[in-house]
Design a binder for these strands. Structure first.
Lengths: 212, 212
DNA sequence: TTACTTTTCCATCAAACGATGGAATCAATG
DNA sequence: CATTGATTCCATCGTTTGATGGAAAAGTAA
């Protein structure tokens, strides 16, 4: 029952996990085609055939990476959901944005890989079913009227918020020189701006809805 | 004085322009490493050596593509700026979001390439200086107090807005199945949502600033 | 036509890439 | 110790990729 990925996640010291971790970073930075198995193997200090021994083909390793980061992301989202449950909307959003931003700045490959997966195609036909969080987040943020279905509008709103966060993490190397700030200041100004831009409209709408 | 790119931009019927146009699409969809010169040549119905004859190395072609889309983008931004000049902030933002969204949905490679350029590295050492629009947009939107300098905060705000737009264009193939809408409805709901999310906070802040 | 230039294709190269078979090494168990 | 299984490396294969030289074709001007 234990898949290779589960094994690797349980024992972070294993070579399997070591390779997976490095693969996350490289695939995140250079994308699927921009990353070679030799790059990963060299960084891990092993031969590329050892990599193949543990994870099979490049495609298989990439799929494992995608599944891996989606598990991490899902766990983090659940943890955040618990923290904000029951609070008023503005606090819910502020805390969620802070927490997710901190987390993603710590593991930027997650944002990198999510965005790569959104925005680019791959020549190799790899079909990976990725868990879909938009509906859950929409529910957690109280954007769904109906308990069961989530409207397209609500999902689009969630995507707008999530992507806004991912962008500043993945785009750091490009954006930070533009604003000319050190990493610490960049992170703090990003968090401020995200909260400023993203929260206002939602809170305002909620006010109007309650008053009517 | 006429660079190859300028030539190609002036005569859209030429083989040079034809290759450039196809290269835009492929580099936008598959990224730099995900695109092969053979793919582009095949799509253009020519031999890859003909491609090389016109544009030189792959790196050179890619650079030409980046410069090309940045010129297009710059021209579009200037055109939009003229339309919104003098209007109140909420209208300025609404019109700009509408216009840019329409434009980018028509030429999605532009968003694709911009985001690729933001979020991913390339193995080949290609250093392209890309024109930087954030300061101009910030000025055009009235986010700069000082005439000459643009604060980091203002630039980050501009990036947040621009990226929000790019995301929904580049992410269409991924997001549209999630919301399960046809293209027309997707575009319209994206525009609505962008205006809803992005405009509110800025207008609200301006109100407060004026009243104080 | 002829002479010359521009453009295109064909054949091919060297390097990089993903992948594999098999020998060598290490670890665990009796 | 010997045996077995798991792990790692080395050598190498077949393809793909970017790139080039040179012939063929198309276009231009006298």
């Amino acid at each position: 029952m234990a898949t290779p990925l589960e094994k690797a996640r349980k024992d972070p010291e294993s070579m399997k996990a070591r390779i997976l971790h490095i693969a996350r970073r490289f695939f995140g930075e250079y994308g699927y085609h921009g990353t070679t198995t030799r790059m990963i193997a060299k960084e891990a200090g092993i031969d590329s055939s050892t990599l193949h021994y543990h994870w099979g083909d490049k495609k298989d390793l990439y799929e494992a990476v995608i599944v891996d980061i989606n598990k991490d992301l899902g766990q983090k989202l659940i943890a955040v959901e618990k923290r904000i449950h029951g609070l008023p909307l503005d606090q819910r959003m502020a805390i969620a944005i802070d927490a997710m931003t901190d987390y993603l700045f710590k593991f930027p490959e997650v944002s990198n890989l999510v965005l790569f997966h959104y925005f680019s195609k791959t020549r190799d036909a790899l079909d990976l079913r990725v868990p879909e969080f938009t509906a859950d987040i929409a529910r957690s943020m109280g954007l769904t009227r109906d308990r069961k279905t989530t409207s397209p509008r609500a999902k689009i709103e969630v995507l707008a918020v999530m992507n806004a966060i991912h962008n500043f993490i993945s785009g750091e190397k490009f954006f930070r020189p533009i604003v000319n700030l050190n990493r610490k200041d960049y992170i703090s100004i990003v968090k401020e701006t995200l909260k400023f831009v993203l929260i206002g409209s939602f809170v305002e709408r909620e006010k109007k809805q309650k008053s009517s």
